[in-house]
Design a protein around this nucleic acid. Structure first.
Lengths: 132, 132
DNA sequence: GCAATTGATGTAATAACATTACATTAAGGA
DNA sequence: TCCTTAATGTAATGTTATTACATCAATTGC
């Protein structure tokens, strides 16, 4: 998947997320980008929408926040199922892609004739560093 | 698990959710309960918090909405992992409890020394009825 | 070049979801 | 009864997300 050409706003939002150590809310991103000319939530939300479509940013539903993708492969809209492990203490998020989970959920869905469009898996808890 | 004694507000909120055909937002519940004396969001949120604790109501993170539990067993705070299949068309939500998924996620978490407190699994898509 | 379309942007306003703060009341145990 | 704890009522505010509308930029077909 080619490194897609991003617009200025998209690039700024992505960069902000990439440098962050924890998920950021849209409004936090907005604040961080005021110096770069951002003035309204929509500028952020529109960029996030595209970046999410491209698969290089993920939305964490249980947090109403966003992270840059750290997953080695699978950019682009091929949309493998990704499970997120979110540390409540340090905010660190790790992405887990596991075919077994995916297959199992797929089977369970099929069994009841459910056609899945999008799957969210989020584990909230404490990472190794913060438990130690 | 004993049928727990609910307060008036909790009972009203639960009843509202039980009779609903799709997940309801807190504010929708509020509107439906105005005739019963509800006047502020907090009345709803407080009831929802307790009902969720009790395990008889679930919050759907990807929807910012709530459903009454339809799952046969597992009331009470024993907190089995539940996956939700949410139909985008009719709003129907089905609960799936699957030990394999649970075990697999547990294994993946352990592998990276992540201690899970709460797991969210939500599939968005189209149910059998709406696909047919 | 220059319409015409399409996609991105800017801005303001508002909608939707959730919490904080504080005062009051109800329920249960010593 | 007194004390403690849990639940409630109310107002205000905070946070997250969208709608509406005007403008601008890039691309395509002619």
């Amino acid at each position: 998947m080619e490194p897609r050409k991003l617009t200025r706003n998209q690039a700024l939002v992505l960069e902000t997320l990439t440098h962050a150590e924890a998920p950021l809310s849209a409004y936090t991103i907005l604040d961080k980008l005021r110096d770069h000319g951002f003035r309204a939530p929509l500028q952020v939300y529109r960029a996030l929408e595209k970046l999410t479509e491209f698969g290089i940013v993920h939305r964490l539903e249980s947090l109403n926040a966003f992270v840059a993708c750290t997953h080695p492969h699978d950019h682009g809209p091929e949309k493998a199922v990704i499970a997120f492990a979110i540390c409540e203490d340090c905010g660190q998020v790790s992405e887990i892609s596991d075919p077994e989970i995916e297959d199992r959920l797929s089977l369970l869905a099929t069994k009841q004739q459910f056609r899945t469009e999008k799957t969210t898996i989020e584990m909230r808890g404490h990472c190794g560093n913060c438990t130690a």
